[in-house]
Computed example of a mutant assay.
Amino acid sequence: MDKDEADRLIEKAKLCLRSGRTDRALQLLYEAQNIYPSTRARVLIDAILRNGGSTGPETNHVQPPAGWRDEDIRHQDTNSASGDEKKSYTEDQRQGVLRIKNCKDFYEILGVQKNATDEDLKKAYRKLALKFHPDKNFAPGATDAFKAIGNAYAVLSNPEKRHQYDQYGDQSATLNAPQHSTHSRHPGHYRSFHRDFEADISPEELFNIFFGGRFPTGNIHVYTNQGASYSQFYQPRRRRAYERREEVVEENQSQNTFTALLQLLPVLVLILISVFTQMMATNPPYSLFYKPAMGLVVSRETQHMGVPYYVDKSFEKEYRGAALDELEKTIESDYIEHLQGSCWKEKQQKSDLANLGQLYRDERLKQKAESMRLDNCEKLHRLVGRQRVK
């Protein structure tokens, strides 16, 4: 129950912050922290003290609730001061924030022309988001500038919202104008502008989509509602953001599947070619060995070297004269290669047996190696000798 009450007070404090009642918000946050201490309340208190909403409970007659000691308040003020001292910024960063604050439209914020393409918008957003991210830029108003950049991209990257903005956006009040002045000058139009050109995704979620969920430095930044001039354009749409992320995941999965199919395409083509080739291939006209399954059962010898080979029954009708001579030259060449390979295997086997017999001192292996015949080697020797004689 204490936690629920503290959460209720924190939400009430946020409403006070939005309406500019900083002192009341601070008092509610002190009460929430006293009932149920939490990081949410402490962060908001730090933010109020750090941004000048109040220098402490005493300054604006806001009394801390019971249980808060002077040491706690001084510790909080010291932490805020020491944190600000560490977060230095350059003059370029300060000038950059001022430029964003003084921009009159979303195109000027991103620094692009009105005819900018989607790629131009992405490049501009990437560059500015990294430059003004609150983890990197500690100049006053950097968080507001970062939010303005995210909102500008979220609107202009949506074709429908961009079309509406191009039609009505220039007629609206300037982005950094106070809320009450906008109502007074354009009482009816402001509500339409706020509704039509409100981003569907928060700046933090947009940044996470672009940069993988974290800032390149790996730092963690906690965003707080400080009543900024740009805050009216940034109401998070977590459900829509979740749906968009789901669409991005599905699109990536589809692209990955398509990429995998493209990578497998050459392999599939080779397989199809191989199958087609085998289907179209005809049986060879000869074989060095008897192969009845292929119909090569008729024994013949080459005219030049007497190499035996086998053919089918229709061989003599197809091969005669010069065609027969060319084929038999091929047969003799294949036969010599076959004998050379077989001879090398026989010699290798004989050598292996002799080495084993010597290694294990086995006379039986030695005798087997010595008595082993090299039949294919002898055939090759006789064939080469016959070729020389002719």
Rank of each mutant, 00 (worst) to 15 (best):
K3W: 02
D4W: 13
A6F: 02
D7W: 05
K12H: 08
L15F: 15
T22W: 10
Q27T: 07
E31A: 02
N34C: 04
P37E: 13
V43N: 11
A47N: 05
L49Q: 04
G56N: 10
A66K: 15
W68K: 13
E71T: 12
D72L: 14
I73Y: 07
S80T: 14
S88T: 11
T90F: 01
E91R: 15
R94Y: 09
R94Q: 07
G96V: 05
I100C: 06
I100K: 01
K101D: 12
E108S: 02
L110M: 02
V112E: 02
V112G: 00
Q113L: 09
E119Q: 07
K127V: 08
L128S: 01
L128C: 01
H133V: 08
D135R: 12
P140D: 11
T143G: 04
N151R: 08
N158K: 04
P159M: 14
E160N: 05
G169E: 05
G169R: 00
D170E: 04
Q171C: 10
N176Y: 06
Q179R: 15
T182Q: 14
R185N: 11
H186E: 12
P187E: 04
R195I: 13
F207Q: 00
I209W: 05
G212N: 12
P216Y: 12
G218H: 04
I220W: 15
H221I: 10
H221R: 03
V222F: 14
Y223S: 06
S231H: 03
Q232V: 06
F233V: 05
Y234C: 04
R237S: 14
N256H: 13
N256T: 09
L261V: 10
L264G: 08
I271R: 11
I273W: 14
I273M: 12
Q278E: 14
M280I: 09
A281T: 14
T282G: 09
P308Q: 11
K313L: 13
E318M: 10
G321Q: 00
A322K: 09
E328D: 14
S333M: 13
D334I: 10
Q340T: 15
K347A: 11
Y360D: 06
S371Y: 04
M372A: 03
L374C: 04
N376V: 02
N376A: 04
E378L: 09
K379W: 03
K379D: 02
R386S: 13
V389N: 13
